[in-house]
Amino acid sequence: MMNPQLLHVYRNTPFGRETLLESSYFCKSVGVDMVIYVPVSTKFLMYFENDVVQVDLDRSYLVSPETAEERARAICRSQGVEPMFFTPKDYTASTLPDIPTEFDYMCCPRSIADVSSKIGLGYIGPRVRRIVNHATFPVYIPNPVFKAWKKVAVLFGGSANAVQAVRLGVRLRDATGFPLQVFTHLGRTRRSTYERIIQENHLGEAFENWTVFEKGRFRDNLFEVPHDALVIVGAYGHGLIKQLAFGSKMEVIQRVLPNSFMIVGPRCRV
């Protein structure tokens, strides 16, 4: 059967090289085919089931297109991955290509839209959020600088998306052979509540290595997450107001942790 596919939007700059290295490493470890889109214009559309998201790239994505494919191929091959290149077939308008959304993973820099100087910790661009919210695939948010990961860590908060995140964790564990570790910050919820959720979803075997923080601040506890782990989180799918008022756990997580992330959105099919 067909391998799963990861979509990577290539940027022909040193930053882009690092993210592509991350993606290639992911593809190699998980056994995923790499599909690279070398942008033909600064914007593209992604049509999801019930929304259309326009992704605006900055000009750096269009830098020296003549070397882009060559370089991207070389970077992938250095990780032992043979990439496919995607050429848009459909255009909504002549400068607005449509990128299909039937991929199994998509790699987004923390902010796909803004100039590289903005890419740092603690910021996930609004476009990436919208992609996460609508996508049927998990979104891979790589490190700014390539670092090989050797573990899979799931931050499990009990929500439906978190359950999906655990499922994805199991899948990646099985595909890579790396150890899986689950972390839960209890907060005000009781441990038994989590255990019930685990039981209802038949996830027992994923929790063999389960670290539960009973006290302490959430952000402090995150220190325990291994530095060489790919971190999987469920996007909590809060409404806008709730997010403004309380902020989301995801926000804290990705501000504190420098690891690469896999974010599982509410419509993600794992």
């Binding site: 600064t42 914007k43 049509y47 326009q54 605006d56 909504t92 308008a93 002549s94 449509d98």
Partner: peptide, 23 residues
């Protein structure tokens, strides 16, 4: 940051191919 074009073809394209999704 709109794409080029005067609009109506975009509407028709969206209706025919994309289930009427527009930005």
């Amino acid at each position: 940051r709109e794409g080029a074009g005067h609009g109506v073809p975009e509407v028709i394209y969206s209706v025919l191919k994309r289930g009427g999704l527009l930005r």
